[in-house]
Each structure stands twice: as structure tokens, then as C-alpha cells.
Design a protein around this nucleic acid. Structure first.
Length: 871
RNA sequence: GGGAGCUUAGCUCAGCUGGUUAGAGCGCCUGCCUUACAAGCAGGAGGUCACAGGUUCGAGCCCUGUAGCUCCCACCA
């Protein structure tokens, strides 16, 4: 048998164990009809990414589920991968190019630039994989995919073409969100709205006929350069007479119409709204209704374009300043109010997004949303916690068309070719050589690439070989559960659901297990700019990956944010050490070499086995309902309290007496504990299992404990708890009297349950500092002069400690205790006397109350007798 | 403007479909190096479960309302 060191050193153990798992191929899953599949696809981290706490939590949850199912005999397949992360990666490589070589991507050209990105990907793409391995993830690395690899590319092409052919993808000019920094269009989901303080400028627009003026209010005066109308509400008595007239745009001099439209709200601002159809989605709609001209004045890079006249070339915010100055100087500015409003910002670079009109590719969402809504509503796809289905449905019910084209180079290039001669758009599975409409061979490929999330949306089936009809798809799809944070429900989860329904005609997963965000100890989001991020690898290095994992999943509930405390890691490391030392203890006392239960079980054996049996049932139930934290907590409590603090202590006298049966029970219980704990703390449990005599090849593939009637001993459990309670009563009393454990004292027990107490003398000696123990029946007259009498509900215990007895104090103490317990009993009796309680509450509940009352009566009786015995 | 969540011990949080005298970790107090572990052991203090009503035999949990905090969504200039 191996000797374990006194302190558990995770660093040494973890890499060794991980290598062993890899070498044995335990993570790999192949289609096997004799087993039920359990499959998870991992949310692919960005190829630019570093593992952060969110990933650590995410992969820990998935690993726990995967290991649990694997141990239950499922064919557990967890598919990992990496996302090409279009914008994020391109920005990173461009940045490197700029800093190191002073070049832009345009200097290199598309082809050369992409070579650089691929080289970058080769260099850094595996970093996050290595980091995940440190966390102990048991995913099938042989199945690892990249969203830009050939398999995924084929799926993207098929998905795009098929949607296009069905008319569900179209190209059109719409107001889109444009990031002037990233120089690309964004989808609605990629815009983050931030409340920013600003102003509401009231501007005078003179009427063309010189009969007066109309005052408009705006938060973005620079956009007036593109104004092509003013809207007022047709019901607005103050303004409706102006409808049909025109006014002169200050500074620009353009004559623009005043139109009546209900979009303009009476009483807000000045009651008149300037219309900039090229730079505001609402104005665009109004413009369509009233045939307003569309004049774009802001260029892609955020400066004013040639339509801005004198302002051309100015940055949009400089221009704003300048325009306000000019308006004021020329007397057009009526007033300025402070006004805070929502400004859209880019989720990647956080610069203000510019709404502008642009020709882009869109996915028509309404028809696709139908099935995606249905499967969540009818429970085919279940969110855990349930409340997130509301978030999802709310979004899906109000979904707008999805802008999927990006003006980037890094990504899946859109498979569309424009005919130079007839302008026809050719979209096809194979690269076309001539226009399908006019036959021209002059074709130009669309330069734009697809939104990264377009390929992510196909992840659950593209990774399994779709569009080919593969065996993997047949066997592992739909996947069992998707684990991810609530912050990407819109980006990803919803798009996977509609894509799965559209392309596979089946939901991509049965369950969506949502977790929250890991925050710092002050409750702030961890971020680079705040510099408050905690590196999971540093923590894992310091406390062990097992401790980190346990930290992340206990003490919080699904879907809720959590705070990260390093102190808690310390507690979890201590827990590891506790298990380690308990195992050392078992090992150093082991002479038997076989893990099997003995024929003859003593009372404490039955007690601990019965508790273990219950634990297995509860943990299984909790895990099946995704209550991972609760399950972990129960295992923790069992190990620390039940096994270490009680059973190991109880085993000591028997071990000393050379009892082999107790060795077997220790080994058995410890092994079962390791199995229960393994999904949560895979490293330390595997290491210990390997050092123990074991029946299965490795813990990772050992059978997960199950409840069994054969090991259910409710009577013995209750009996032994009487003894434990009595021992506790002695300990408590001794501590109160400040008697050191080294001062042993005889214990005389009088109990109404002599059968339960039979043979328990050694436990009193070991755990209650008894020098010797006499056990008598309930009628025994114990106590008297020179004795301290201790009462439990099941026994009266007398300790000869004359020097400690102060009769007055003793009397007062017992009276105090009597008072308290009589109070409790009174409560109990009142409850039991309540006719409606007894008749309406379930019998089991009533019985619990009766037992409790009975217990109180016994305790009170003991106390009364003791009091009477005090002279 | 909608929607969601939170409010439980000094701190951070559990408490699963209503059923003991409401729990954990950390912190605090007392005593112990008891031959697995001082990263430990034993004992202990500490909570009118935000507030007000209601339903129920029974409410931290369900319903209604109030207050405070947080987040998400939404085209109000």
C-alpha cells in the first residue's frame, strides 16, 4: 500500500492524474447502441481568450454533469472546441500588426492578413485548451472542433444557402448599428445601451414662407445635416396647421417638409421632431411613410461626409460642438436642457455605435422564431432555472431581423457572387463560375463575412458532422444539456434553438442550464479595465483545482450571480486536506486488502451505512434536478461530520482491538464517498482511490453509488443516535464546567433503551472522556451526593465529580433547563391538541410531532428526577 | 415603459414542490497539540427570515400591497 504525505499537494497530483485519464482514453466516447448517450457541446471559448472565472464555473458545471453521467454508465460525450471570434480576433491581430510593424490590414491585403490570423490562431489557439485541462475537464479532445475548420465551414455554407433559397436570408438597405471603430455592422444584440448624460437642444427651424418658425428638440444636433423633414403629431393643435408647409434647415439652407406622423408624441420636447432618415431607425420609418429623402452625412469612420458641406471631415462629436456654436451664434438655438439618454455602444470596443443606412445581409426572423418559441413553450427545451424561459420568450417574441454581414476579413465569407453584368446575386453550395441568370463569367464575390454567432448557432450539429447524415448526429443529437451564462441567451442560445429547429427539425438540446456571473468580492463584474479579475489558474495553483471547483459550485444557486472570495478557497482546500487525512488514517490502519462489507455489522456500522445510503439517494436526486451546489454541500457535510467527526472516532477503539470488520466498513464508506465526490473533486478523489485497495480500474469510470434497501437501517440509525446524543450531552456539560478532556471520569448510565446502549461503553470512553462505563436500565437509581448528573432524552448519566458539584448552581441550572423544555413541550402539546392539525396534517408529520413531544417528556422526566435527587 | 431577480447571523450566501427549536463557510468567544488532520478537535454566542396585510392546522417558502437594491429588454426625439 502506498504511503500518502501528511499534507495534500494538489500540484503534483493533478497533472499526473490528468495525464493518466488522457492516456487511458476515458474521455473519449464512441457511438455505442448498448449504452444511453449523454452529450454536451461545450460553449466554445474565443480563440483569443484566456480562461477566466466565468469559464472556470462553466466548465466545472459541465464536467460535474459529464462525470456523474459517465459514472452512472451513460455514454458521456462532451465535445470541446474553440470559436474564431471574428471581431475580437481580428482586432487583436490588427493591433499586433500596428504595434510591431506599423501596418494596417489594408497594407497587407486580405489574403496576407488572413494568413497572419491563422498563424496567430496556431500560436495562441491552444492556450485556452491547456488552461481548461488544468480545471480537470473530462471532455473528448479527439472531437475538438474550431468554428472555422472545414467541417464547420461546410455547415455554415449549407445553412446559409438553404436559408437563402427559402427566402429567409436577404440583402437589403436598412438602418443598422455601425461601429465606427471596428468598422463593421453589428446586430441588435451586439449593441449595449449605456445611460449617458447629455443635452436636449431646442433648435429653431424658420418656416419657408416667413410666417414663423418651428422649434425641434434633439440630443444629436450634428445629425441635422442629414435632416430631410420635420414631423409633428397630426392631432397636435399647436402644430397641425403647419403640416404641408416647409421650413428651412438652419446652417444648411435646405428646404424640408413638415409632415404629420403619430410617431411624434404630443407634449414631449417641443412637440416637433427633426427627421434624419439616414441615421435613425424611427426617422427612417417615418421617412418611408412620407417619402422623405435619405441623406447620409456620417461616414463609416465616424466623420462627417461630403454631404455635410462645411462640416465635412469633422469627427461626429467635434461636429456636434461646432454646430451648436454656430447655431447659437446665428440665433437658432432656443435653449439647452440637461438630458440623459441611452446611447448604443459596441459590445467589443465600447465606442458609441452609429445608426446608419447600409446595405447588409439579414436573416428573416419571424418565420424562424415560430418553432423556436413553440419548443420552449411546450417544454421540449427546458430552461433551468425556469425563469429564463421568460427572458428567452420575451426576446424571441419581439425579435427583429438579424443583421449577419460583417465588414471584416476574419470569418466565414458570405457565399454570394454579384454578376458584374446583370447585378444578379448568385448564392450556391459550390463556387459559381458563371452567373446563373445571364451566364456572364464576370462575377465578384461578396467581401463581407458572417457574424461569428452565425456559425456558433450551428454548433450542436455542425460539430457532429451536419449536413452529412452522420452516425454521431443520429446518436448524440439532440444533445442532453447546454450549460451557459444568462448573458449569452440572446447571442447564442436562442440562435442555436431556431437553427436547430430549422436545419435539424429537432431542438439542439433538451435542457438549458443557466448560471450567473462570477463577481469580485465587492460584487463588481470582473473586468480588464477595473483590473479586478482573478485568474482561476493562479487560484488553482495555490489551492488546487478541486478546491476552486468546489468553491465555484457551493454556496450559490443556479442562475444567480456569485461573489468570489479567496478565503473560501482556503476553506475548500482545508476540506481537501480533511479528506486526504481521513484517507491516510484509514490506510494506516488497514490490514485487510479487499474492499467488501463484513458479514457482521455493529450498531455504528449500520448507522453510518444507512446514512451513506440516504446520502447516495439525495445526491442523485439533487444532481438529476441540477441542484449541484446542494448535492456538493451534502457530501461535504457527510464527509466532515458523519464520517470524520463521528465514524472515524468511533472506529478507533475497535481498530486498536484488532477488529477487521471495522476496517472493511471504513474502506467501504471511504470508497463510496470518493465516488460521490469524484464529479466535484476529480483529482484528489482519483488519487486516493488509486492508493486504496479498489475493485474498479479507475474512479472516473467506477459506478456511481445508488440507494439500496439492503443498506437501509432506520431502526439502528435511530438507536445509535440516542447514544450519540448522550455522548454529546456529556461533552457539552464537561465543556461548560471547564473539565479538560484529559480528566477522565466514570460514567454511570441509566436508560430506558438498554438494548441501544449495549456494548457502547467504548464509545463513551473514547468520545466522552469516560474512564469506565456502567449501563443500567431506566429504573436504576443513579446520582446522589458527589455526582454530576447529565440528562439526555434517552439517558441519565452520573459522573462522580464531587469537587465540581455546587448544589445551588446545579439546582438553578436544572430548573432553567426544565423551564426551557417545558416551554417546548407546551408548544408541542398545544399543536397536538389542535384537532384540525391532527386531522389535516399528513400522518407522518403528526407522528414527528408526537415523537418530539415524547422525547421532551422523557428529558423532562429525567431532569425532574435529577432535581429531586439533589439534597 | 415593460420584465426579472434580490432583501435570512458581524460578512458572503444556502434553504429544492409550505411541515423539527431556520443552516453553512468565514469571523467571534471558551477549552484542548485526544497517536488522520492546529489547514485540526470539542463546546458556545449570534437571526422579530425587508415591511404590512392575507391564505393555511402550519408560512423564510404561497397570494396581495409597500419600500430599498440589482439586472435585462424596449425606436420616445
Amino acid at each position: 500500500m502506498k504511503e500518502l504525505p501528511k499534507i495534500y499537494d494538489p500540484k503534483e497530483v493533478e497533472s499526473k492524474i490528468y495525464d493518466m485519464w488522457m492516456e487511458k482514453g476515458y474521455f473519449h466516447a464512441e457511438r455505442d447502441e448498448s449504452k444511453k448517450p449523454f452529450s454536451i457541446v461545450m460553449p466554445p471559448p474565443n480563440v483569443t481568450g484566456q480562461l477566466h472565472m466565468g469559464h472556470a464555473l462553466d466548465c466545472t458545471l459541465q464536467d460535474i454533469l459529464t462525470r456523474y453521467k459517465r459514472m452512472q454508465g451513460y455514454n458521456a460525450m462532451w465535445l470541446p472546441g474553440v470559436d474564431h471570434a471574428g471581431i475580437a480576433t481580428q482586432i487583436k491581430v490588427e493591433e499586433e500588426l500596428r504595434v510591431k510593424e506599423g501596418l494596417t490590414r489594408y497594407d497587407l491585403g486580405r489574403e496576407k492578413f488572413l494568413e497572419r490570423v491563422w498563424a496567430w490562431k496556431e500560436m495562441y489557439g491552444s492556450r485556452i485548451v491547456e488552461q481548461q485541462k488544468k480545471m480537470g475537464v473530462s471532455c473528448d479532445w479527439e472531437r475538438s472542433r474550431f468554428t472555422m475548420d472545414d467541417v464547420c465551414a461546410k455547415a455554415v455554407r449549407e445553412a446559409f444557402v438553404s436559408l437563402y433559397e427559402k427566402g429567409l436570408i436577404y440583402k437589403g438597405s436598412r438602418i443598422i448599428n455601425w461601429c465606427p471603430h471596428c468598422l463593421t455592422a453589428l446586430s441588435d444584440a451586439e449593441v449595449e445601451y449605456v445611460d449617458k448624460p447629455g443635452h436636449l437642444w431646442h433648435i429653431r427651424y424658420p418656416l419657408s414662407d416667413g410666417s414663423g418658425e418651428i422649434v425641434v428638440a434633439t440630443t444629436r444636433p450634428e445629425t441635422m445635416l442629414g435632416d430631410t423633414g420635420v414631423a409633428v403629431n397630426p392631432e397636435d393643435d399647436k402644430h397641425k396647421h403647419l403640416i404641408g408647409k416647409t421650413c428651412i434647415l438652419p446652417l444648411v439652407g435646405r428646404e424640408i417638409p413638415i409632415v404629420g406622423d403619430e410617431y411624434c408624441e404630443i407634449g414631449f420636447g417641443t412637440g416637433a421632431v427633426k427627421m434624419t432618415p439616414a441615421h435613425d431607425p424611427n426617422d427612417f420609418e417615418v421617412g418611408l411613410r412620407h417619402n422623405l429623402e435619405v441623406i447620409r452625412v456620417i461616414a463609416d469612420n465616424g466623420t462627417i461626409n461630403e454631404n455635410g458641406g462645411a462640416y465635412e471631415g469633422l469627427d461626429r462629436y467635434e461636429c456636434r460642438k461646432k454646430i451648436v456654436e454656430d447655431l447659437e451664434r446665428e440665433g437658432y438655438l432656443v435653449k439647452v436642457e440637461d438630458y440623459s439618454h441611452n446611447v448604443g455602444t459596441c459590445y467589443r470596443c465600447h465606442n458609441d455605435v452609429e445608426p446608419l443606412i447600409s446595405a447588409q445581409w439579414f436573416v428573416k426572423m419571424k418565420p424562424l422564431a415560430k418553432d423556436a418559441i413553440r419548443v420552449v413553450e411546450d417544454g421540449t427545451v427546458k430552461y433551468i432555472p425556469e425563469r429564463f424561459s421568460k427572458t428567452y420568450l420575451n426576446w424571441m417574441n419581439n425579435v427583429h431581423d438579424w443583421c449577419i454581414s460583417r465588414q471584416l476579413w476574419w470569418g466565414h465569407q458570405i457565399p454570394a457572387w454579384y454578376c458584374d453584368d446583370c447585378n444578379h446575386i448568385n448564392v450556391s453550395r459550390e463556387d459559381p463560375t458563371k452567373c446563373e441568370k445571364c451566364g456572364s463569367t464576370h462575377l465578384t464575390r461578396e467581401e463581407d463575412v458572417l457574424d461569428t454567432w452565425f456559425s456558433s448557432a450551428l454548433w450542436p450539429f455542425s460539430t457532429l458532422g451536419w449536413p452529412d447524415k452522420t452516425e454521431d448526429l443520429d446518436y448524440f443529437y439532440p444533445t442532453s444539456v447546454l450549460v451557459t451564462g444568462y448573458d449569452i441567451i440572446f447571442f447564442w442560445v436562442s440562435r442555436m434553438i431556431f437553427s436547430g429547429m430549422e436545419h435539424m427539425k429537432k431542438q439542439p438540446f433538451d435542457k438549458v442550464f443557466i448560471h450567473g456571473i462570477v463577481r469580485d468580492s465587492l460584487g463588481r463584474k470582473m473586468s480588464k479595465s477595473l483590473g479586478n479579475g482573478i485568474d482561476p489558474l493562479v487560484i488553482a495553483d495555490k489551492y488546487g483545482a478541486d478546491a476552486l471547483r468546489f468553491n465555484l459550485i457551493t454556496g450559490n444557486s443556479p442562475g444567480n450571480d456569485m461573489r468570489f472570495y479567496e478565503e473560501k478557497c482556503e476553506a475548500m482546500r482545508n476540506f481537501c486536506n480533511k479528506i486526504w487525512n481521513a484517507s491516510r488514517f484509514v490506510m494506516m490502519n488497514l490490514t485487510v486488502t479487499e474492499n467488501k462489507l463484513p458479514e457482521k455489522l455493529e450498531l455504528p456500522d449500520k448507522w453510518v451505512l444507512s446514512k451513506l445510503n440516504t446520502l447516495a439517494k439525495e445526491v442523485t436526486d439533487n444532481l438529476d434536478s441540477y441542484e449541484l451546489g446542494v448535492a456538493a454541500q451534502k457530501i461535504y457535510d457527510f464527509i466532515w461530520d458523519t464520517f470524520c467527526d463521528w465514524y472515524i472516532e468511533l472506529s478507533k477503539p475497535r481498530l486498536q482491538a484488532g477488529d477487521e470488520d471495522v476496517q472493511h466498513v471504513l474502506l467501504y464508506v471511504l470508497t463510496e464517498i470518493l465516488k460521490l465526490l469524484h464529479p466535484f473533486m476529480p483529482f484528489i478523489t482519483e488519487e486516493i482511490y488509486d492508493a486504496l485497495p479498489h475493485n474498479e480500474e479507475a474512479l472516473i469510470i467506477a459506478k456511481f453509488p445508488e440507494y439500496t434497501d439492503a443498506l437501509s437501517f432506520p431502526t439502528e440509525e435511530r438507536d445509535f443516535e440516542m447514544v450519540m446524543e448522550s455522548i454529546s450531552a456529556i461533552r457539552s456539560r464537561r465543556a461548560e464546567m471547564n473539565v479538560p478532556p484529559s480528566k477522565k471520569a466514570k460514567v454511570i448510565v441509566s436508560t430506558a433503551y438498554p438494548e441501544a446502549f449495549k456494548g457502547t461503553e467504548m464509545y463513551f470512553e473514547r468520545l466522552a472522556s469516560a474512564s469506565e462505563v456502567d449501563i443500567f436500565g431506566a429504573d436504576a437509581d443513579i446520582g446522589g451526593d458527589g455526582y454530576v448528573v447529565i440528562n439526555s432524552a434517552y439517558a441519565k448519566m452520573a459522573l462522580p465529580m464531587a469537587e465540581l458539584v455546587d448544589l445551588d448552581k446545579e439546582r438553578a441550572r436544572i430548573e432553567q433547563e426544565l423551564k426551557k423544555n417545558r416551554g417546548f413541550l407546551e408548544n408541542q402539546e398545544r399543536k397536538l391538541a389542535n384537532e384540525s392539525f391532527v386531522s389535516r396534517a399528513p400522518e407522518a408529520v403528526v407522528q414527528v410531532e408526537r415523537d418530539r413531544a415524547e422525547k421532551l417528556r422523557a428529558l423532562i422526566k429525567n431532569l425532574e428526577e435529577t432535581l429531586a435527587g439533589l439534597k
